[in-house]
């Protein structure tokens, strides 16, 4: 019972510390189709930008690879921001 009361005390202090902020659940219901569509769309845009940058700078495939990876990371960030907005 001692451990339980200690745990209770911890819970009470934590609740009082974070009183005003409540965990916000995501309002946007992103199913699996929508999440995969975001990643695909981002890869498409990344390749498009990389393609035109390559044409401008005449570098072959350098910008395509860089923009592909960056666009993939950007899509993950986009998904994270849509689901988890506090």
């Amino acid at each position: 019972m001692d451990k339980l009361s200690k745990l209770n005390k911890k819970i009470q202090t934590y609740k009082e510390k974070h009183k005003g902020k409540e965990l916000k659940k995501s309002k946007v219901a992103l199913g699996s189709l929508n999440v995969s569509l975001e990643i695909i769309g981002a890869i498409f845009v990344g390749l498009l930008i990389g393609f035109y940058l390559d044409k401008f700078f005449n570098t072959g495939f350098l910008f395509k690879i860089i923009c592909l990876i960056l666009a993939f990371v950007a899509s993950l960030m986009n998904i994270y921001r849509t689901i988890d907005k506090k």
Binding site: G41, A42, F44, A74
Partner: peptide, 13 residues
């Protein structure tokens, strides 16, 4: 990139 991807994913979705 995150900024530029937004209209495209909005439409594709």
């Amino acid at each position: 990139f995150v900024y530029l991807i937004r209209p495209v994913t909005l439409s594709i979705r």
